[in-house]
Simulated scan of single mutants.
Amino acid sequence: MKYLNILVLLFFISACSEKPADMNNQLKYEKDGLSFSYPANWEVTEDFVSEDVRFVFVESPGDAIIKIEVYPTEQSFELKEFVELDVEALIKEIPSILELDSDNEIKEVKTSINGTEFHGLKYEFNISVVNIDVPHVSESYSFPSHEKVAYLTNQVAKEDLGKVNGGFKQVLATFKIEP
């Protein structure tokens, strides 16, 4: 029981440790045809290729994350199918000590940044540990190019969305993929 209490405490300490995105300072990421700007207090933690699919992870100082996946066009998906597969993977990968609840409803979302509209899909879910709930939100967008399709997915606890939403929008607005 002591182990469980420590795990629950660590889970909620990390869930409450989000810091606001540093929107006054930004860093630029440019590598192998991908480029975007992101808050200076965030970090690109991974950039690797596995079976022709490129994965890039951008993480906030807390638990917010942006996952970028780049597929060759012939292996790409419609955005809704991509989100459905992402949700299936989340359900399979969640540790058994955590419970995942969702209404399985994927909703359309429009985000306007400096006059440009981005159309994506939003998925909300709840992670709970011993009946303590932490609602989360995830949004996904696709960026097709001539030879590739990039998918950007951001995810964060709902209570922290206000702290990191500016950072999510910054990456989304500045994202570019070249052939």
Rank of each mutant, 00 (worst) to 15 (best):
Y3N: 13
L4W: 11
N5R: 12
N5G: 08
I6F: 10
L9V: 11
L9H: 10
L10Y: 08
S14C: 09
S14Q: 11
A15V: 08
C16E: 14
P20A: 15
P20W: 01
M23H: 05
N25Y: 11
Q26V: 05
K28L: 15
E30G: 05
K31Y: 13
D32G: 09
D32R: 05
G33C: 03
S37M: 10
Y38D: 06
P39F: 13
A40Y: 06
V44D: 02
D47Q: 14
D47F: 13
D47A: 14
F48W: 08
E51Q: 06
D52T: 02
V53A: 04
F55M: 09
P61L: 15
G62C: 10
A64K: 11
A64W: 12
I66F: 04
K67E: 09
I68E: 05
E69S: 13
E74R: 15
Q75A: 02
Q75V: 04
F77G: 05
E81V: 14
E81L: 10
F82S: 05
E84L: 14
E84F: 02
E84M: 11
V87M: 12
A89I: 04
L90T: 11
K92E: 07
S96A: 09
L98S: 10
L98K: 07
L100R: 09
D101M: 05
S102N: 01
N104T: 03
E108W: 00
E108H: 11
E108S: 15
T111M: 01
G115L: 08
E117T: 12
F118L: 04
H119Y: 01
F125Y: 15
F125E: 02
V129R: 07
N131I: 04
D133L: 06
S140T: 15
Y141P: 01
Y141N: 01
Y141C: 13
S142M: 01
A150Y: 01
T153A: 05
Q155N: 13
V156Y: 05
V156G: 03
A157D: 07
G162Q: 02
G162H: 01
G166S: 02
G166W: 01
K169R: 07
V171M: 07
V171F: 03
V171C: 06
F175I: 04
E178L: 14
